[in-house]
Nucleic acid binder design. Structure first.
Lengths: 228, 228
DNA sequence: CGGTGGTTTGATGGTATTCAAATGACGTGG
DNA sequence: CCACGTCATTTGAATACCATCAAACCACCG
């Protein structure tokens, strides 16, 4: 039986697995969410952070005027809810894209862990620093790259990420809708659709619904550097 | 004499002032930099973090292909160099826009502080969480707002920031060049120039070199919500 | 077998970029 | 103190890219 539910946790950028010998397992709460469920909404009180054990989610920022921006797609091993660490309120929505299993660490537990373990401190700080750098890369992409380049970069990054999760880097199903991906890339859905089509006709990828086959990594990389 | 050099430090989002009773003042090193000097370059080893006491700086990310993106303009009270906390190397350049005074905390000192003080832990984590949220807002701006809206938002934010630093919110000198500002906003310099001109003709602001007078805050806000 | 939501395709227009040249600010040396 | 050179900024005209609007198409589900 699974008294140590985190032992299957995929340790990627951040995982509290190392913390387990500092905490009573039974204090940890786990929960299953379904597609379209929200883990939290902007404005909610911050009560702790969450590790995504399985499934997928997206985080969304909204501003006055109805503009929404998808900030991240989250995959197993990632830490969710850190946006509430600033002033005890969450600023983004987090919504699941698939059935997901999530592990909760209360603010109190987190504080204890941070006090006790230098490893945990470094893990959290390192994870946040890494997120900042990734956000900066995203900004640069959206700000300076053409639509085709943004898509190429997304596909390359995603391919690499799939392989680091032990999955095929050449053939995968996207968890997000076209609308979500377009929003994330800062494009209109129609533009994204046209770009996917263009890449397909160029023999770079094969598209079938949410299934993507990457046929030519070199061509994909060329799209990033030379545009078109 | 100034044996406690941080006592004038403007405590804004983050300041180590509270740490001073945990550290020997004389361990802290201070340094003056001139305009155009670099605090660090991408790839440099991470040796510690810096508090900006006076002056101004910009941080810049570069990717293969020569694309550069200004990520932040930094003002007194801010913590610099946290991009190196992830894997012991800096990923961005930080360059001064003006003569600046900087206070250095070595990685060892920082670790000590984090171990000793819950306040410091929360300050750092909170500051990083806040930066993430601000980066997200920037992404949303660049991704979804028109050029005019981006400029309007920048001017409003800057005005507010000036006032929170105890300076006039209606009349200020920008520390950065047009080129820098355009890059930051994700626009061509020509476009930025035209937008400034347009705002001026609309009676929203008065522009003279780097001096900006905000004549009509309401109109400025309207530009943000209704575009044009 | 309709219906619905999501996706694709087509035609058009607007916004911002690009290229080019003019203008202006500023610092240096004569 | 002014002339000159350099760099930054502005202005103009043409173009490209992407968004928008509109309609068709398709997968999925009851």
């Amino acid at each position: 039986m699974q008294d140590t539910p985190c032992q299957n946790c995929i340790v990627k950028p951040f995982c509290f697995a190392r913390a387990l010998d500092l905490l009573d397992y039974r204090q940890l709460s786990h929960k299953i969410y379904e597609r379209r469920d929200f883990l939290m909404r902007a404005g909610d009180d911050f009560i702790g952070v969450y590790a995504l054990r399985s499934g997928a989610a997206k985080s969304i920022m909204t501003i006055e005027g109805g503009h929404e921006q998808i900030l991240h797609f989250h995959y197993p091993g990632e830490l969710l809810g850190t946006d509430g660490l600033d002033n005890q309120h969450h600023v983004n929505d987090i919504q699941f894209l698939d059935t997901s299993n999530v592990c909760f660490f209360s603010a109190v537990q987190l504080d204890e862990l941070l006090a006790k373990s230098e490893d945990i401190r470094h893990s959290l700080i390192s994870a946040m620093s890494k997120e900042i750098t990734e956000d900066h890369k995203n900004l640069l992409n959206v700000s300076q790259l053409s639509g085709a380049q943004r898509l190429a970069r997304f596909l390359m990054d995603h391919s690499k990420q799939m392989s680091s999760r032990g999955l095929s880097p050449n053939c995968f199903d996207l968890v997000m809708s076209r609308t979500d991906l377009a929003n994330y890339l800062g494009l209109a859905i129609e533009t994204l659709s046209r770009l996917l089509n263009r890449f397909q006709r160029a023999g770079v990828i094969k598209v079938n619904q949410r299934r993507i086959d990457i046929l030519d990594h070199k061509k994909l990389h060329d799209h990033l550097t030379t545009d078109t």
